[in-house]
């Protein structure tokens, strides 16, 4: 079986048929291979940080990961999403095939760093303990993350990957891509809105 997910351009080069005059070949990688070593390095750093119990490094992973995750969700949901929805189909396709493969690597990495480091940080600070005066806010953050995870893992990410596969076909189907992109844009908006709730919770926890 050919590994098309990670295949190079030669294995899935698209014939010229069905391309517009200025369109480039649909030979992008669904998972950008060049990004994998970076992801691996970040995850190794995360594990080493947790294993060595360095509070500053744990805080760094949580704050940087969480900040980027929240910013990206808000930016995608409220800035890029509406712009994408208003673009002509060919322009949307061109933008999507450049953005989405990067998101396939970036988002899971940020989420994992934020959650794992956040858990350790909460353990260090004692906010996981049920006796902590604002433990309810901590549990609320778990719930918001869980809801976002269901939406992201159950709808957003599958739609993202499905769009990329459709766009690699010799004759991508605009209706299929349109339906999947609609899912993506709506769910990105929902997770963006939930990130606002997360910002409220986190700033509340940080200042009490």
């Amino acid at each position: 079986m050919t590994d098309t997910v990670l295949a190079g351009p030669d294995t899935l080069a698209t014939p010229a048929v069905a391309r517009g005059p200025s369109a480039e070949p649909h030979d992008f990688q669904v998972v950008p291979l060049r990004g994998l070593p970076i992801v691996a390095a970040v995850l190794v750093g995360l594990v080493v940080t947790i294993a060595t119990n360095k509070l500053w490094a744990i805080d760094f992973f949580h704050v940087v990961g969480g900040g980027l995750w929240t910013a990206l969700d808000l930016f995608l949901g409220f800035v890029i999403g509406p712009i994408l929805g208003s673009l002509a189909i060919p322009a949307r396709a061109e933008f999507t095939k450049r953005l989405m493969p990067k998101m396939v690597l970036i988002m899971p990495t940020l989420v994992l760093c934020t959650l794992a480091a956040g858990w350790q940080l909460a353990r260090h600070l004692g906010t996981l303990d049920a006796s902590y005066s604002h433990h309810g806010w901590v549990v609320a953050s778990f719930i918001v993350v869980a809801v976002m995870a269901v939406i992201a893992l159950g709808v957003l990410e599958p739609a993202n990957v499905a769009v990329l596969f459709e766009m690699r076909k010799p004759q991508p189907d605009g209706r299929v891509i349109g339906r999947l992109m609609h899912r993506f844009i709506v769910t990105a908006g929902i997770t963006g809105a939930m990130q606002i709730a997360m910002l409220v919770i986190m700033t509340r926890l940080a200042t009490t």
């Binding site: 069905a18 391309r19 517009g20 369109a23 649909h26 189909i89 060919p90 396709a93 061109e94 459709e166 766009m167 004759q171 991508p172 189907d173 605009g174 209706r175 891509i177």
Partner: peptide
């Protein structure tokens, strides 16, 4: 959309 890069099949 026929003729577009992602024309409807």
């Amino acid at each position: 959309m026929t003729g577009d890069p992602i024309a409807t099949s």
